[in-house]
Amino acid sequence: MSLTPRAIIFDLDGTLIDSLPVILRAFHSVCAALDLPKPDLRTAQGFVGAGVPVAMTRLLAWANADPSLHGRAVEEMEAAYGASPGDNEVYPGVREMLARLQEMGLPLGLCTNKPEAPTRAVLDALELGPFGAVVCGDTLKLRKPHPDPLLETARRLGVAASDTLYVGDSEIDHQTAAAAGIPFAFFEGGYLNAPLGDPPPALVLSAMSDLPQAFTSEMVRKA
Rank of each mutant, 00 (worst) to 15 (best):
P21H: 10
C31R: 03
V30N: 00
Q45I: 12
A61T: 14
S19I: 09
L36T: 11
P39Q: 04
V74I: 14
D18G: 00
G49N: 06
R72H: 09
V22D: 15
Q45Y: 04
L41R: 15
P67A: 00
I9H: 12
L16H: 08
G71S: 12
A44K: 01
I9T: 12
R58K: 06
G14F: 00
F10R: 01
L41P: 12
F10C: 00
S29H: 14
L41M: 15
A44N: 11
V22W: 02
E75M: 12
E75W: 06
N64D: 14
N64Y: 09
D66C: 06
D66W: 08
L60G: 01
P37V: 11
I23P: 07
V52I: 14
D35R: 13
I17H: 11
P39W: 06
P21A: 03
L16Q: 13
A65V: 08
F27H: 05
D35G: 04
L41E: 15
L20D: 05
P67M: 09
R58N: 00
G14Y: 03
D35F: 01
P21S: 08
E75K: 12
L60N: 05
L16F: 07
F47I: 01
L41S: 03
A26D: 03
D13Y: 08
K38M: 13
A61R: 13
E75Y: 07
L36W: 06
G71P: 14
A63Y: 11
F27Y: 14
L36A: 06
D40M: 09
W62F: 10
R58Y: 02
D11S: 11
L16Y: 02
D40K: 14
T15H: 12
V52W: 04
D40P: 14
A73Y: 03
R25S: 14
Q45W: 10
L60V: 03
K38H: 13
R42M: 12
I9A: 04
G71C: 10
